[in-house]
Amino acid sequence: MFELAEELLRRLDAGEPVAVVTVTRVLGSAPRPVGCSMAVAATASGERVLGAISGGCAESAAHALAQQVLASGAPVTEHLGFDEWAFSTGLSCGGQLRVLGYRLDASRPELIAELRAAADGSDAALAIVSRGPDELLGRVVTLTGGDAGLPAGVLGVVRRELADRLVDGVCGVLEPSDEVELAVLVSRARPRLLIFGAVDVAGALSRLGRQLGYRVTVCDARALFATAERFPDADQVVVDWPARYLASIEVDARTVIAVLTHEERFDVPLLTAALDGPAGYIGAMGSRRTHQRRLGLLREAGVSAQALERLHSPIGLDLGAVTPMETAVSIMAEVIASRTGAAARPLAQGSGPIHAVVVPA
C-alpha cells in the first residue's frame, strides 16, 4: 500500500472515493509480496486503477473486489489461488494470495497519517486486521495510535511487531491470537544514493535512483557542473570536496555510494573514508587499468585488503552498456544484486521458482 502513498493521498485530498485491495498473505510462489496493493478511485471522468497485486493474473479479481468495497463501504476478504478455498481466479505461478479490500477515507486518520509519512519519505508502519470478527476487519493499529478493538495484551504484541518490522523493512503477517490475524505493513525512510561526480552518467543515475525510491544527492567540487539545472531528479546537489561532504553526513548500511569521478585527487580520499564506513554498497567508475592503479593508491593510504573487497570496481554489471542510462541500469542492477545476494544471472539459466516461496507458518 505504501508504494501508492502519494497517489492515494492525491485522490483522497481531491475528495474522490477510493477502495484499496492489499495482499495480506502469500502462500507458495507469487510475484508480489505482502503489503502490495491495487486501488480504484472513482473520479469525475470514471474509474482510475492504481498499482497491482500480481503479475496480471489476479488484477481483474482485485478490481472487482474494489468495486464491491466502493459500493458497500464494508471491508471484505478474498482468497485467490488453487485450493479448497479458491475463488474463480488462480495465479499462473501456482501461488495463492489472501487479500483485504477496504475503503480509504477521512474516517481512517491513523492510516492516513502513515500514508503521509511514507509519501514524505519517512518511516511508516501499521497493522491492519485481515482476519477476525466482522467488526474488527480492516481496523488499524500504528505505533502511536489506533487499537483495532484489541485487548491491551494483544495490542502490545502488535506494536512490538511493528517496531521490529521497521528495523528490517519487511512486511509480514502476525497472528497474536487464534481469532485474529493482522497484516503488518512497513515502509522505511528512503535510503540514500550518494553520487560523486557531476558527469553525464550522474544525471541518468539520479533519475533511475529516484524512481527506485532513493533520496539522491549529487556532489562535486566544481560549481560549474554541480547545478540543480543539470540534475533535476536529484533531491540535493552539493558543491563540496567529496571526502569532506561524506564526513559531514550520516551514512548507514542502506546507503549507496557511487563514485563516478575517476580522478585520483577526489577518489582516493573519498573511497578511503567510504570503505571505513557502514555503507551497504560502494562502487567506483573507471577502466580496469584505472581500477588497478586506484587499488594501489588505496593500499598506500592504509585501506585494508578486507575493506577493499567491499569495493565494486569497475562499477556495475556487464550488460554491454553504452549510453548513460544503460550504464545507470547496470549500476543499479548491481546495487540490487548486492543487497539481495542474488546471482545476477539470466533467469533462464536457473531452476525452481523465480519468486520467493513463502511457507505457511
Results as ranks from 00 to 15, higher is better:
77 T>W: 02
170 V>K: 12
200 D>G: 09
28 G>T: 07
218 V>I: 15
232 P>E: 11
8 L>E: 01
81 G>F: 00
354 I>G: 13
295 L>I: 15
197 G>K: 06
353 P>Y: 09
115 L>G: 05
203 G>K: 02
57 C>R: 05
181 E>P: 02
271 L>Q: 04
105 D>C: 09
14 A>P: 05
55 G>M: 08
237 V>A: 03
246 L>V: 05
260 L>R: 05
56 G>T: 10
136 L>D: 03
32 R>F: 02
24 T>M: 08
217 T>A: 15
124 A>V: 12
342 A>I: 02
159 R>M: 07
57 C>H: 02
218 V>C: 02
95 G>P: 00
268 V>I: 14
208 L>C: 11
185 L>V: 14
319 L>M: 03
276 D>G: 15
12 L>S: 07
348 A>L: 13
103 R>Y: 05
129 V>M: 09
93 C>T: 11
332 M>L: 15
177 S>A: 05
268 V>Q: 03
19 A>W: 08
312 H>T: 13
302 G>S: 12
119 A>R: 09
229 E>Q: 15
74 A>I: 14
159 R>D: 04
224 L>R: 15
146 G>R: 00
254 R>K: 04
144 T>H: 14
143 L>F: 11
153 G>V: 07
277 G>M: 11
86 A>P: 04
349 Q>S: 14
160 R>S: 15
296 G>L: 12
228 A>E: 15
354 I>D: 13
204 A>I: 09
264 E>I: 14
288 R>D: 11
326 E>D: 10
101 G>R: 09
93 C>E: 10
54 S>V: 10
61 A>V: 02
284 A>P: 03
351 S>C: 14
154 V>M: 00
242 P>Q: 09
311 L>V: 07
325 M>P: 06
165 R>F: 10
51 G>I: 01
14 A>G: 07
257 I>V: 12
40 V>H: 04
63 H>A: 13
181 E>Y: 03
310 R>C: 02
203 G>A: 04
110 E>F: 06
320 G>D: 08
125 A>V: 03
39 A>C: 07
85 W>M: 13
299 R>I: 10
86 A>L: 11
324 P>D: 05
34 V>A: 11
335 V>R: 01
334 E>T: 05
90 G>P: 09
152 A>V: 15
277 G>E: 13
297 L>H: 06
359 V>R: 14
346 P>E: 04
280 G>C: 13
234 A>F: 01
113 A>C: 09
357 V>G: 06
193 L>W: 00
336 I>H: 09
61 A>Y: 02
118 A>S: 06
77 T>E: 01
106 A>C: 08
215 R>V: 08
340 T>D: 12
310 R>I: 03
43 T>P: 01
148 A>D: 12
9 L>G: 07
292 Q>S: 11
1 M>T: 02
184 V>P: 00
121 G>D: 00
66 A>F: 05
193 L>I: 03
297 L>S: 03
263 E>I: 00
200 D>S: 12
108 R>V: 06
185 L>Y: 06
148 A>R: 06
35 G>Y: 01
281 Y>I: 02
169 G>Y: 06
25 R>V: 02
165 R>V: 13
141 V>S: 00
157 V>C: 13
91 L>C: 07
291 H>E: 11
249 I>K: 09
279 A>K: 00
71 A>R: 12
38 M>H: 05
6 E>W: 08
117 A>Q: 10
308 L>W: 13
162 L>A: 09
100 L>F: 05
233 D>W: 08
270 L>A: 11
317 L>V: 11
95 G>L: 01
108 R>Y: 10
249 I>T: 13
